[in-house]
């Protein structure tokens, strides 16, 4: 009973507070990550040579270095050149750019899987390159990329827990403070784990629903 009291009066309120911060980190980062991913993926396939190289370099750097290092760079590194980001802003910037790099991989793969014939057909109808990308290629590629992109969003939910490393106190941060204060690591982190599990399950359900909504004959995913 003692445990339950502790949970109700201490753990739950702090975790809820952190939960709100986590959500406010995840939603914009996931959205920006997808946007960056679509743009970067498109540029890596259809951009001019120098742009392609530039974006390839971006992806190589953000996929090739630990996210914590990136977060440190945004929060502790940028002030050296006179740019000060709040812990929250640094986290969102870090997550979006890292997520965008991964998303661009899924988008790029999906773009490359679109049959070339459809592009010829679009061009033959007088579509410009940009109109073709928007009306013919992306709508198909994004459907193909959706499972991968969804997976990346689920990863993002979990790695959002790194924000506390740059003093943005979200759910994991709250838990850490609480646990070390009362010295109840097991209980508190089990509770945090459950919170993430709920979040991830919700996101999974939403993505599955979205896939169903966007499904078109001929675009069903295997196993349906």
């Amino acid at each position: 009973m003692d445990e339950w009291q502790f949970f109700q009066s201490q753990v739950f309120p702090s975790l809820m507070k952190g939960f709100k911060v986590s959500i406010s980190l995840i939603l914009p980062s996931a959205f920006l990550g997808v946007c960056i991913g679509i743009w970067a993926g498109s540029m890596r396939v259809y951009g001019s040579t120098w742009l392609r190289k530039l974006v390839d370099a971006y992806v190589a750097i953000f996929r090739g270095t630990p996210l914590v290092v990136q977060l440190f760079f945004w929060y502790f590194g940028l002030p050296h050149v006179g740019i000060y980001l709040s812990p929250f802003a640094a986290s969102v910037v870090g997550f979006s750019l890292c997520s965008g790099a991964y998303q661009s991989e899924y988008v790029r793969g999906a773009l490359l899987s679109i049959k070339k014939g459809q592009m010829l057909a679009a061009q033959a109808l007088g579509f410009s390159k940009w109109q073709m990308l928007r009306s013919v290629i992306l709508p198909q590629a994004l459907r193909r990329a959706l499972p991968g992109c969804g997976n990346e969003i689920i990863y993002l939910i979990k790695y959002s827990s790194l924000a506390y490393m740059v003093t943005c106190i979200e759910m994991t941060g709250e838990a850490k403070i609480l646990a070390s204060h009362y010295f109840k690591y097991t209980e508190v982190f089990l509770a945090v784990g459950a919170f993430y599990l709920v979040l991830v399950s919700l996101a999974g359900w939403f993505l599955h629903h979205l896939e169903g909504r966007l499904s078109i004959p001929g675009f069903e995913h295997h196993g349906k």
């Binding site: 014939g117 057909a121 679009a122 109808l125 007088g126 410009s128 013919v136 078109i216 675009f219």
Partner: peptide
């Protein structure tokens, strides 16, 4: 000249061996 090319292509229809419909 891109504008001219796109305008020209609108006036020339093309049919392909494997249809190339937009699948979505």
């Amino acid at each position: 000249r891109k504008r001219e090319l796109y305008g020209y292509r609108q006036q020339v229809g093309m049919i392909f061996q494997d249809f190339n419909l937009f699948d979505h």
